[in-house]
Computed example of a mutant assay.
Amino acid sequence: MEALQYPIGRFEAAPFYTPAMLQEYIYDIRDLPTLVELAIQQLDEYQLQTPYRPGGWTVAQVVHHLADSHINAITRLKLALTEDKPVIKPYDEAAWALLEDVNNTPVNVSITLLHALHTRWANLLEKLTPEQWERVFIHPEHGTHFNLKTQTATYSWHGKHHLAHIQGLKERMNW
């Protein structure tokens, strides 16, 4: 079950981040919408409503979750860039996945949103100064300060993690 839930492994923060690592994470963020779009483009409604693992979200819920999560990520980035150590607002992502917009919105709407959002996000990340990369926000659930390097690494992993859910399901189901 661990392999189905974490197909690329759990996120592990690096002890330090080089400029080359950060650039790779930015590429991952920029490319994710296209990769997700390609992964789902041939899926029918039945396939989109199939959970990627027992007890897991459906493919459609995963796509909508990426949009929800990444909206929060860019908001947190901008808060960290414009405020001194802001305390971010957590959200219940499992509850968000059950809201009616997830059930009644075609996945292509969230794909379109991801394309626009990730373009803006990557464009902003590419212009950060070394000092800006060190800015932090505070996550109240963890009581931890997250700098923007770690946040960017986390969301690079997050996109690949959910893409692997979709790709793994397709492979197991021979779709």
Rank of each mutant, 00 (worst) to 15 (best):
D68L: 04
M1L: 08
T150W: 15
A60I: 06
Q151R: 12
Q61A: 09
Y25T: 03
A97Q: 07
I88Q: 11
Q41A: 13
L4D: 05
Q41W: 11
V109R: 12
R53L: 08
L169S: 03
P19A: 04
Q61I: 00
Q151W: 11
D101T: 05
M21L: 05
D31Y: 11
H64R: 04
P7W: 08
G56S: 03
E24G: 13
Y27F: 15
V59H: 02
K78A: 02
P54Y: 04
W57E: 06
G143K: 01
I29P: 13
A153W: 03
Q167S: 13
A94I: 15
E126W: 13
I71N: 14
I138G: 13
P7T: 01
V59M: 05
V63K: 07
Y6Q: 07
E171A: 10
A153Q: 02
L43N: 06
L125E: 00
H65M: 01
F16S: 15
A13Y: 03
H118S: 09
K149G: 14
T112Q: 14
K89H: 12
Q47P: 05
K78C: 01
T112Y: 07
T112E: 13
L117H: 07
L99N: 09
N72P: 05
A95S: 11
A153L: 01
A164I: 02
N103A: 15
H64Y: 05
T119D: 14
P51D: 03
K85V: 12
A20P: 08
T150V: 13
L169R: 05
Y17L: 07
H142I: 09
W157T: 00
V109S: 12
A3N: 12
R135I: 03
H165N: 01
D44Y: 09
T144F: 14
E131F: 11
L38E: 15
D31W: 08
I26Q: 13
V59L: 03
K127A: 12
E134N: 13
S69P: 08
A13C: 08
W96G: 05
Y17T: 04
R76G: 05
N104P: 09
P86M: 08
I88D: 12
G55D: 04
E134F: 00
F146E: 06
P86I: 01
Q167L: 14
H65S: 00
L113D: 06
N147R: 01
T144N: 14
F137D: 06
E83H: 13
G159K: 00
G56R: 02
N72M: 07
A39H: 02
Q23W: 07
E93L: 00
P51T: 00
T144P: 09
A13K: 04
V102L: 07
G168Y: 01
H65F: 03
N72G: 13
V136G: 07
T58V: 08
L48H: 09
N108M: 10
H65L: 02
H145P: 05
Q61D: 04
H145L: 13
P33V: 00
T82H: 15
N147Q: 06
Y25G: 06
K170F: 09
A80Y: 07
I74F: 10
E12T: 13
M1C: 07
L32K: 06
I74T: 08
N108T: 10
H70Y: 11
I74N: 05
A39V: 01
P54V: 04
P19C: 04
T18M: 09
